[in-house]
Structure formats: C-alpha cells, structure tokens
Nucleic acid binder design. Sequence first.
DNA 1: TTGACATACTCCAGAAATTGGACTTACCTC
DNA 2: GAGGTAAGTCCAATTTCTGGAGTATGTCAA
Lengths: 405, 405
Amino acid sequence: MAPVFPWTPSGLVSPDSPGAVLQLVRTAHASSRSEIARLTGISATTAATRVQALLDHGYLEEAGEGVSLGGRRPRQVRLRTTGGVVAAADLGGSHAALALFDLGGRLLVDRSASLRVQDGPESVLGWVHGQLAEMLDGLEGPAPLRAVTVGVPGPVDAQAGRVVTPARMPGWHGVDVRALLGRLVDVPVLVENDANLMAVGEYAATPEPGSHLVFLKAGSGIGCGVVIDGHLHRGARGAAGDISHASVGTDSDVPCSCGRIGCLDAVASGAAVTRDAAAAGLPVTDTTDVLRLAADGEPVSAQLLRSAGRATGEVLASVLNFFNPDTLVLGGRLSQAEPYVAGLRAVVYERCLPLATDALQVTVTRAGPLAGVIGGAHLALEHLFEPTRVNATVGSGAAGPATAS
Amino acid sequence: MAPVFPWTPSGLVSPDSPGAVLQLVRTAHASSRSEIARLTGISATTAATRVQALLDHGYLEEAGEGVSLGGRRPRQVRLRTTGGVVAAADLGGSHAALALFDLGGRLLVDRSASLRVQDGPESVLGWVHGQLAEMLDGLEGPAPLRAVTVGVPGPVDAQAGRVVTPARMPGWHGVDVRALLGRLVDVPVLVENDANLMAVGEYAATPEPGSHLVFLKAGSGIGCGVVIDGHLHRGARGAAGDISHASVGTDSDVPCSCGRIGCLDAVASGAAVTRDAAAAGLPVTDTTDVLRLAADGEPVSAQLLRSAGRATGEVLASVLNFFNPDTLVLGGRLSQAEPYVAGLRAVVYERCLPLATDALQVTVTRAGPLAGVIGGAHLALEHLFEPTRVNATVGSGAAGPATAS
DNA sequence: TTGACATACTCCAGAAATTGGACTTACCTC
DNA sequence: GAGGTAAGTCCAATTTCTGGAGTATGTCAA
C-alpha cells in the first residue's frame, strides 16, 4: 500500500484566524464568547482573550446578557458602531443622494440634492465633500469618517478608482475620483458603478452567503448589477451588467446611440418610452410624466410601459438562463410602474427554463432610492473590516481601520 | 476627537495559516523555504518548520537546488505527486473519456470508450469503476486513488452529487452518482456538468486568479461553463451556463424540444446543422459528416456551419456584454469547423461593446477532448488540497487527504 | 425548596507555536 | 581570496493557545 497522509496541515480546514472573531460578531453569526469558541473551534480561553482585545481597542462593546440555554446566561458583545462613520454618495445624471452610516451599517442621515454634473469633477466632488462635512457636523455624537464610496452612472475601474467612458457624465472620462476626493477627505475612497452599488445594497438587505443576485436598474437608461456568492462581480473591465445593447425582436427602427437598431436601450429605456409616448401625442416631457399617466390609468402609456417590460424581460430571460441567480431585483424608476413589472415578469417566466426559475425570486426593490448609498456603505464597511486582499491598496492605503480625519 | 482604532486584529490581513504553505508550493508560487517566508510574512524558522512537517508527512518532496540570487542556492521543494492519484470520467451521450492524474495534475493515462447510457446508472457506474480499476492496475508505481470526478451531460446538483433532469441521459434523473460510485471506490466523488468541467479544464491550463472565463461547448447540443474569479459558477440550481433556449432572430420555424420556436439549440446546434444539411440533400447522418464535408470544401455545409456560428455569436454577445469575461474559449466538435468559428467571432466582435471586447480573448480550446477530464482532475485536487468550506461534506466526507482505498 | 446538571466564563500553569538573532553554508562579484 | 549576500539551521526567549480547575449563574425536576 502506497503511503497515505495521516496528518492534515493544521489551519487548512477551519478559518479561525484572530480577525475571524470580529467578522463573526459583525455578521451577527455570534454574539457571545462561548458561541465564538463553538463556531471557530478555538478554546473558550482564547475566544475570551480575543474578545477582550477587541473590546479594549474599541471594535466591540458589551451588550448585556442573552437568554440562557440551560445554564449561565451568555454575556453578549456587539460591534461598537460609534467608533466612526462611513459615507456614501450616489451621483446621477442630475441628482445625487448622500448618506452617512455608522459602523454597523445603520443609516444615520441622508439627503438628496440636485447636481450639476456639467460643472466638472473638481467642482462636483468639492460639493460632495462640502455636503458630507455638513452632515458630519450635524451628527449628535461626532465620529470620525472612516471611508467614502462614490457611485457614478457609468463604467468604473474600481481597482484604480477611476471613471471610464461614462455616457451620462460628459467630461468625466478617466477622472481619478479616488485621488480627487481622497485629497479632500483623507480616508479610503471607493468608486463604483451605480447599478453595482444598488445590487450590493439589495444584497445587504438579506445577505445570504453563496447566493447570487441580479439587480436591474431601469431608469432613463438600463443597467444591471451582479452579486455572485456575496461578492460584487465587476467583470474584466468593470463593465459587467451591461444589457442596454442587447438586441430585442422589435419592428422599431429607431437607431441606438451605438449605431445599431433594436438595442434594448433604444426600445425599452425610460427615455425610449418617453419618446414613444410623446410621439403618440401624450403630454409628456420625461419619464416621470409617463409613470404618472400610467398610474392614473391612461392606457397608451401603460401599454408602452408593458411593452418595455416585455422587451426587458426578453433580454433578462437569456441572462437568467445563463447566470441562474437566486434573486432578480427590479429597481430604477420604471420598476415603480405596475405594467412594466407585470410585462417583465410574464416574459421572464415564459422564456426561462424551469431550472432557472424554480429557485428564482423576482422582487421589486425594497431599499428603493437608498439602495445605492446602502450598497456604498456595505462596500465601505467591507473594505474597512475585511481587507482580505493584501494588494488592494485603496485611498489612503491603510488596511483596516486606521487613522482618519 | 472620537476614539480611533490604533490596533488591527492580527490575522485580519494576511492569510498565513499553516496550510497556506502547501498551497503556495502547489500553485507554483513558491518553491523554497525562504520564498515561502517572504511571501507569507512568517519567519524563516517557521517556514522551515512547516516545510519540514509537509516533507515528513509526504505532502512535499525535495527537488534539488535552484539558481542563486546572489548567495546560497535555495533548496527547492515541490508537491510530492506520487502520493496518490485522482481520476476523472467524462460521460457523454454515447461516449466516455476516462483518465488518471497524479497529485500535481499531470495526466498519467487516459482512455476513451463507447458508452451505453441506456444500460442505466448502476451498470454504467460499475463499468466506470471497472475501467478505473484496470487503469490503476496498469500504473507503474501503484498509488492509492484519492478522489474521483464524474462529468455528465446535463444539470447537476454538485452539492448533493446528483444528476438533475438530464436531457441526454434518460433514466438518470435524480440519480445519486456520488453514493452509487462512492460505494464502489470509497473515496470522495464529485459530480459535475460536462461543460462546467471543460471550462475548469481550460482555466486550469492558464490559471490566472481573478480572471473570468466562459467556455462554449458546441457539439450536438450547446452549453456553457463559467469560471468566475477562478471558481466554477454553478448558479442557484447548478443550471448556470445554459444558452440553448435563448431565442435568435431567424426565419426558421423548426420547433425546439422546449416547445418554442427560434431557440438557439433548434437553430445552431450540431443536431440542427445536420438536420438542415440532410434536408438540403447532403449525404450526412451526423455532425461528423457535416464537419468532414465542410473541411473538404463543400459550400452548403460550410454555409450552414457559418450560420450556426453567427447565431451562437449573437447569443454569446449578450452574454459577454453582461458578464464581461477575460476569455471566451470555444470547444465542442463544432469549434473544429473554421466557418463556425469565423461566423461566431465576426458576430461577437460586431455585437459586443468595446468595453466587453477590448480585454476579451476568443480562443479555440487547447485541451480539446481532454478538457473535461482535466477539469475533473482540477476539481478533485482542489477538493483534496483546499477544503476551505467547512460544511462541504463530499463523498466519504473527509476534509483534505485522508484514508483512501 | 433543593439538589442535579448545564452553560458561561475566568484563572492559571503547562504545552505548543513563533520569533529574532547568532551561526553555518554556499554562492556571487570583484 | 575577501567581502557581501542569500539560504538555511540552531536555540533560547517570547508569545499564543490549551485544557483543567474553579466560579458564577442559570434550568429542570422531584
């Protein structure tokens, strides 16, 4: 008999590194010393020691006693959420949402404001910084800013923190948002596509490890965000999630911005629906008008929205068959229109394979307009607390909580 | 100023667990003690101790001396590949490929044979076991079998090791391949879809961590395998990669097996091409005939293959835009036909967005007919050496190298 | 009420792992 | 050769982890 391995390299199986204790508490998987010992396999003594270290350094705080499981009640601990805040800014074509969150991911304040993208990156990011500073000043217990996430409506090189060819933000191509804003705030700055942020925001609402989520942002443009196994999928060039130029079977001959005919974006986007509604003689100038008419029971607008939903569903069906996610979340302004959602759902269930739909949940966004900033906060906190990738130097470069402004 | 964290939980940043040493050597990232110390950040003493333990237990072996970097030559170590073998079986509709690999992933023997699926799971898996036993007997230095991967042409519940609704293997629905084969071989058994295995096999040829790969298997049916960030993406129900029922713009009215019209499978699969070729009066009975005619310069068959490639490219373009991989690998028998590949490439580059194609490599499979078993070996070795998921009880359940037959 | 038993946690001494520095080996360059 | 450098070993000091004893505080059932 050839040699066998009677010995397994220790540490190969269970990830019980010291930092894992913080993760367990942060993700609500454990809340007492004994629970940590059980889950990680480390001894009770070690668990207590590590918890104490985290308490001493302000990562955790005592949280009273839990319920007895037949013996002494456990002394619970939780993340100390007052040790700082993270900020997220979700920039749109003409509008921005800004918010502050505590270290537990709880929303502290948010505001939204109209934005003048055309003023250029320096001006806009300066404005963002001013808004954030105001919000920070307004907090009750002042806490240091730890990280900022900026969402922009276009492709992003998240590694470098740069904007790439944004269709809806002329003048921003190649702009190093990380450097520009990092100079002002002096904390790590993450830059991300807005649909990606929304996807993460929805995932954060019910974070099931190992689950896959596709988020559809159907507004004046159409885009997707993809979360795979709990991690944002950006693709090779940060361009993942683009379905706007998939071709749909249509008799429309309106040319798309990409030069082709029959692209989803030219047929089923908010802009396209508005254009078609206006052409049909309805008194509309933007997507909101169409949504209002449809909500009031105006049939032509409802019909247009339903068609847009069906066209989008057609494209999504291919995506869902290919990608087989657990969840499809519909967001963006069009997802507020019932005919749109109904049309989309009908086609998805008609066109998808049984295996693709039997586990699939199709829901309308719960986080709503805050999905983007919630996702931004999630990424910022992940960056602060789980800097697993050693080479991921972001912003001020510090791995984990470090000096902040 | 609110409290800041001057202390970072140790172990939060660098993954330097004892088992990491084995991974570094296995993945060819390190080959000497000093290199391991440098890469992991552990002291030279510790690195030497761990290497010695791995040597003592047969995981590693000495491998002579390397080149000097200005001082003493490093004493190299490498994975001890003779400590066992892994097996992979790639079952097709009527054909099977079987192979044995050493623990370094090197192919030792392979054979292919015709298969009678209709004999049923017990019979077929018994036959597989017999073939593997024969091959094991034929090895020079007899080594114990450590794990087996079985690829089947249909959806799979990899977690449970079961086959799910396989279109091309009637009688196999719900069959617990892991249990059936595990009873015979008494080592961990992995079950996986064949296109998935091929994707992993191609990835294994040039394993770049963080890269995304889509593998197209275009044979008598059409399927994809997806590797995300080095990990196989199975989807929620193990059904990821299915593009056979995406609809393509065509004037064909041949109904698909799913009951609809215009599905890719009904238009561009090997079976569809053969059908159309026969209908055009060509003397063909299967895909091989068509490929041969086209290779001989027969224009109608070439034209049909080109159209099939174009239709497939149309569907893939959507997938590539959405998914933004680094690599698209074309495999399956149709990928051997130049007109098919040319048609596919043309449409992909025409229909994809610049961001989706500027980083994209479109290549024809290098691993060829062995891609499936190579992928199977890769998964088996990954299971043996990287059992990071604690709950992943597979086969005989042991995590890491353990008792074997 | 009371005893039996369980869980949660702490304390402490022994065991194990890790480290830094001294030391050896062995190569390169000049 | 001499000096410099990298690779690796040896060893004592240090740090970390563990298991068992002991304490605190519950549940449960008679």
